[in-house]
Design a protein around this nucleic acid. Structure first.
Lengths: 334, 334
DNA sequence: TTGAAAGCGCTAACAG
DNA sequence: CTGTTAGCGCTTTCAA
């Protein structure tokens, strides 16, 4: 059995209350006593039990995070940022993978609810009402998702999301200025909130510039999905493709390369997230920058109470690299 | 405040002991009482506190996992497999990212030790003695690492690892049969156990076949590290490069492509893990396959006590794809 | 400045 | 079958 504060107190000849005070930092203990307690604690290799402390204080020092897919780089970098920020505050992370399943997400929330101080729901598939209900039991941070009606959200619910507006608008303008007359957008899962935002922005921007927009989608917005997406694209007429995220763009790029379709000579590609290490994509990917790690940091900030606002937004912007270029002449004239 | 078992008991007109029994499954409660308690619990929206239960039972229902890098696909698929298996047993996962840092790893262990039932250390950089010491405090599963002397390991320490022997031996034979006379190996962090295994295997196999082996290393075995690794390689004389893992190989591939060095025409590349989605690497990467998700499942099995053996091994094998080819004639003759 | 005592929410003997 | 009684390890009033 591990040593308890009881043994430390006994050994040091003080009450456990005093021991607790001496160990717990400050609250009024004479220096000599403190040193004695600390010494004994060190000698006995004492480590305070988080469990005991949690029950007594009512806060566990852990936060729960539920992701749709822990193997997706977008979420792993979100998780990494969150872990890093929270970890520096000595907060632990309970992680759950919902595998895009509603039931799994509910089960995870149930398991975590009574043992974490807050819950981060990334790209939650839960209906608004259920999220609001959960927020009445414990603080919730909604990441990469926003309630339709923010007004009804309890104070314990905060939201952090990317504002894809500027980035996707710039993407359309960028392609327009390169002479492209139409855009194919590869959307993510149908339930995706961010997908809806992206679609809406593209629709608006294309309409304004008189460009034609065609939308297709992938069930899972990952590399393999990107490769498959090409099947549903009419490559004869497409000159510019915007992808739901970099993974999809990367998959697209890989299969285009295998098919010997020149990028950007024949078709231009735009990704989203700017989540790839420099050099991974070939050619270097033009993408809408909006980092998931920033999102993770904001989520963390909202938990440790450094963010006043109940709703934070991360702006996005286009980063033009080498995967976009002038529309091929033939297509322009056709 | 959330409803407690006390309120449920009061409302149902029974003692909290009976309430606990009724809720906790079976132990001898008459059906009528049970139904009444269950009814009240449902009505009051009662959720048992994991914290309270943990303290009382002495087991938290959580296991800790410490990884060197949560963004590395090798570890995320390990984590996913672990999470999935453990989750089905209603066990939660506390995750920590050590960022390859010894101190961070120690801190994480300290934070987790008193609130998890077991700890999974993936590719731990800790010295053997420290791991053994930790295993005296709580059950430890060492993943992708093995103690030098298994004899001294306590019964609470189990080990699951890839056996890189066959895979790396095959890699050397493969390169040898392609006419390569020497190999450059890019190792991972100096404390990496698996790196030592890989080095040892390569050394042995090269010696046997009369090949020359040169070893260099990267501090962090990721994509960026792979790109930097090229600086320390004498490309004039190298015809075959074996990388610590796929991420490093991928980085290498990307910079070679930028430098217009043909792969495998000019130099052959071998990765390790087979962690990349098909098509990501160009050309398709020849790699040593060793499933990290199998590793995760084994780790989980060892925790839920389904594995008798204190030490399990996952075999590896070479998967030859397109990044390896015949050694260039000039180098063979030089 | 220190100690005694009362819990935090729950389970687990041990009696009845 | 059910209630009583102790705790699990810790923090925190409330007195001394």
């Amino acid at each position: 059995m591990a040593t308890t504060i009881r043994q430390v107190a006994a050994e040091a000849g003080v009450s456990i209350a005093t021991a607790s005070r001496a160990l717990g930092g400050s609250t009024a203990v004479v220096e000599a006593t403190r040193q004695r307690v600390l010494g004994v604690a060190a000698r006995l290799d004492y480590t305070p039990s988080r469990l005991g402390r949690s029950l007594a204080t009512g806060s566990s020092g852990n936060v729960g995070v539920i992701l749709p897919d822990v193997t997706n780089p977008f979420y792993t970098s979100f998780l990494a940022a969150l872990e890093s920020t929270l970890g520096s505050r000595d907060l632990g992370i309970l992680v759950g993978d919902s595998h895009e399943s509603l039931d799994a997400e509910r089960a995870l929330i149930g398991r975590m609810a009574t043992q974490v101080d807050a819950l981060v729901l990334a790209s939650s598939r839960l209906p608004d009402a259920e999220i609001i209900a959960a927020a009445r039991r414990l603080p919730i941070v909604l990441a990469n998702r926003r309630l339709d009606d923010a007004a009804v959200a309890p104070a314990t619910l905060s939201q952090v999301a990317l504002d894809v507006g500027p980035g996707f608008t710039q993407a359309v303008e960028h392609l327009h200025s390169l002479g492209h007359g139409s855009i194919v957008y590869i959307d993510g899962p149908p339930q995706s909130w961010s997908g809806r935002q992206k679609r809406a922005t593209l629709t608006r921007a294309c309409a304004r510039l008189g460009m034609r927009l065609t939308v297709t989608a992938v069930a899972r917005p990952d590399f393999a999905g990107g490769r498959r997406a090409l099947d549903s694209i009419d490559l004869e007429n497409a000159t510019a493709i915007v992808a739901f995220n970099d993974q999809v763009a990367l998959g697209l790029l890989s299969v285009l390369r295998e098919e010997d379709v020149s990028v950007p000579g024949r078709v231009s590609i735009v990704g989203c997230d700017d989540s790839l290490p420099p050099g991974l994509a070939w050619p270097h990917l033009t993408t809408v920058h909006g980092s998931s790690s920033t999102l993770g940091e904001l989520a963390a900030a909202s938990i440790v109470g450094e963010s006043a606002a109940p709703s934070e937004t991360v702006p996005t912007r286009l980063i033009a690299r080498d995967s976009t270029g002038a529309a091929p002449a033939t297509s322009v004239s056709s």
